[in-house]
Design a protein around this nucleic acid. Structure first.
Lengths: 238, 238, 238, 238
DNA sequence: AATGAATGAGCGTTCATTCAT
DNA sequence: GATGAATGAACGCTCATTCAT
């Protein structure tokens, strides 16, 4: 029926509007500064209406986190299937590019991820949304881990006896998450001599992967160029 | 005067007591669960007295962060001057051991660092304490950066043209901070195949430093063993 | 017109449905738990539709009270015209049986009566419904009072100078209403030694009426048996 | 120490003040109309202060109920030990006088008793206060039951085989509670011919007790006079 | 200097009621 | 006529902060 469809569409639009506003606010004033009153007063809807979409404040935060993780997963998927990749090492570079693009393009999403990691929200939230988060996080790791296992299978990645593909995943995750967290929360990077942290991150990441003997299929490879290509070709960097 | 001295001592002791209690509480119940009422009720002093030591709640948090950073700085200093080091690469390994030990021995301190990074506390806090934090953070970076510059001077570390000692610092910082944050906030590491994240961190860190061509002075070096020695000799691992 | 009649019938049916649902809800979750949202969500009609039948929440409650009083009145009328009565004392026993049956068969109705008596609903309700309540209550008293006056007229009831038929009514009312209220709201009757309150009520009521010298026409009379007969013959006790 | 004593006294005074105000308000606007905001706004203290005395709204209500039941118990005790009693029947009349006086002198207390009976408050209240209520109610019944058992022991009260002293207690309780409830909540008593309900209650009560063959020790007894004497001598009727 | 009673703005949440569709 | 999204006042409650004692 047309009516139902329109109503459902409107409902989803409203929900998106609430989340958009809450996301920006969360980024600006932090978890503690975010209040239902504030959301309502800065929106064309009233508090009661917001409660018709979300059972409580925590559900809003978690919905934002779900959006963020979904977006990240989507970008990881796009990157991992990039047609320009010539080898598994290319594909992992593409993931790095996706992570970079994600923070650049959706800084609010990244802020939400960090907040959710530090605030304890879980008690009042729905099982459904909690699971969604776990699933997204798991799948992101699966994608990266899958590329590593591909590399192992094809022989362009070798691991020492005690290390597994998952340790590579953990290394990339740590390095990226740590770097972006520091960049977004530390005010004195510049004056401490760290002038281009993103370039440094790229370099550090490559060193680590090189350390794992993760090689391009043929000859040398300029991964900076690969990452820029991915950002351009997959994510439409202007 | 003796009186003043005693009073000052008592004042400092009280302050330490307040912070000890607040730190434990912060770790247990989180930033939201921490309240002046709760602190006071679990202490032999009253709310009013606490306010004579700290202008507001945020100042307490910041004081905790100062303590944490001071402790970390102290451990970094101890590690950087470790007498057992045979080369700059040994000394950087010692810093890694210090970072590891810090999280192990003072998990509350590390938790405070994370909270301060995510909660926006700054507006109500005193310039003095804010600066103290900056100074500590700067000095920690100076120590690590200094070791790197030492390495460069002695030729056991080489950098590509576009990279600086600070980029190495940033790499180590990112990797460590990211790893410990993930370890303390992610519940599904194990089930995602990451079974020994600390060992993985050590490995990843070494790969990165190896990538920078940071070499031991003579022959090969078992950095796992070096780190364990530092933890034992400098920080008294039992 | 047929249309109007059908519409009116439908309207009445809907109204009855709303009240049925509200009554059960009122009994289960109490006055505070009763909400328009809850009624609507458990019904095939929406909130707006409910408001087309009842001006506000209080009107629903009052409508329930009206139903309750109407039902009680109907039962009192049936009891008072019981064909098995041999004298006015029999008829008053029949009223007692009706009161007993009412609480047994329609506990929800009785609960409504109590709630209306304790919650202050009156301000927002319609004069019409308020009057209906008064009328029902008055008629109930008239019925009982009428039996008493009959007894006086026929000489099987005698009153002291200062007492009127209405005082007998008040006595029966007090005793019954008090007893059922205590039974439905006191949790510790049993442990305080009151094991069969309904039997006690019957006995106490008979003692009071005996005290008024309200006599059966001929010889002795087993009022317990009379009341059971009324419940069976008039109200179809299975 | 004097200081502690003064502070405790002040605390108790404040608590009493809060309860006094809440009691009046509860009587005027009912359980539903009573709100913490309203209490605070009509008092010289703020909301926060009230919460320093009572954990939540329900605790206030229950504290009021405790006061009411304690007062009633106290009056029952005074009545039961009235020195002017010549026999157990006199003492039961004294209890009746106490019940009458209680409603007269502390109508707010009686209103609280009724409200607590109908509102479901229990879930959030402290076990301590809940028990206090049970104990008071139990003791009131014990007092009345004790008088009845005394009467049985001395032979001035006889019971049929199936009835116990507790059934007499229940009868008195029902009749009194019912009567006062109707009096305080029914607006059309007068116009329905019930002109002096209290006198009627006294009469009905006596008829019931007479029915139980509860006799004065010697000759006849004017229980109206006895009750008035109790109200005068024990409770200082002006 | 130490106390803790008092404050009151602010919180998350509910719900009777309205009204555009 | 039926709907249910929207409202917003009111609720119970918390807590950082102040200040008279």
């Amino acid at each position: 029926m047309v009516t139902v469809t329109r109503k459902q569409r409107e409902r989803l639009e409203r929900e998106a509007k609430i989340l958009d506003l809450a996301r920006g606010m969360l980024h600006e004033v932090g978890y503690l500064g975010l209040s239902m009153d504030r959301i309502a007063s800065q929106m064309e809807y009233s508090k009661g209406t917001i409660y018709q979409h979300f059972q409580n404040k925590e559900e809003i935060i978690l919905a934002l986190a779900n959006e963020a993780l979904e977006k990240r997963l989507e970008m990881f998927e796009s990157a991992s299937t990039w047609s320009g990749a010539t080898c598994s090492r290319d594909r992992i570079a593409a993931i790095g590019a996706a992570a970079e693009k994600f923070v650049e393009q959706y800084p609010h999403h990244f802020a939400v991820e960090q907040i959710v990691r530090s605030a304890s929200i879980w008690e009042k939230t729905s099982e459904e949304r909690r699971q969604f988060m776990q699933v997204c996080e798991g799948r992101c790791m699966q994608i990266v881990g899958g590329i590593a296992r591909d590399g192992l299978a094809h022989g362009d990645l070798e691991l020492p006896a005690e290390r597994s593909a998952e340790d590579v995943v953990f290394g990339l995750w740590s390095l990226n998450f740590g770097a972006y967290t520091i960049v977004t929360s530390s005010e004195s990077l510049e004056e401490n001599g760290i002038r281009d942290p993103i370039a440094a991150l790229r370099h550090n990441q490559n060193l680590m992967l090189d350390g794992y003997n993760w090689r391009p299929l043929y000859g040398d490879r300029d991964y900076d160029a690969v990452m820029d290509r991915v950002k351009r070709e997959v994510f439409g960097n202007e």
